[in-house]
Design a protein around this nucleic acid. Structure first.
Length: 105
DNA sequence: CTGTTGACCAAAT
DNA sequence: TATTTGGCCAACA
């Protein structure tokens, strides 16, 4: 891995704490990991996440309450399906952040 | 080393 | 409400 191990580990740590049925945004996760200006780096970390990591990457969405994938992509459908399985519905392509956002402990 | 890309974001138009 | 703009920076070519 090339991203600073420290950031990588903190993101990994926070990600593992997100409860099922809740979501956080990339920027929020970056802040929670102590790197407020690194929303994009969080995306890069998730992108490189190993397949069998077991981490809830699908609970991370963008600040607009949308999934950061093209709607016609398999990744989009995969994430949407995983969220639906946790009771999180996409209304008009958007998630009600006010209702599902996780605010930490 | 330079330039581009992108699972981003907040503020300004 | 919808786009654009400027900032961010790791990964990649």
């Amino acid at each position: 891995m090339q991203l600073s191990d420290a950031l990588h580990n903190r993101v990994w740590q926070v990600l593992s704490q997100i409860p099922a049925g809740h979501v956080v945004t990339y920027g929020q996760l970056a802040r929670m990991a102590g790197a407020p200006q690194h929303a994009r780096a969080v995306g890069a970390i998730l992108r490189q996440l190993p397949n069998g990591s077991g981490l809830p990457w699908h609970r991370v969405i963008n600040s607009k309450g949308r999934l950061s994938f093209a709607e016609d992509s398999g990744a989009y459908r995969c994430q949407a399906e995983r969220l639906k399985a946790e009771g999180i519905e996409l209304c008009d392509g958007k998630i009600a952040l006010g209702r599902y956002r996780w605010h930490g402990h």
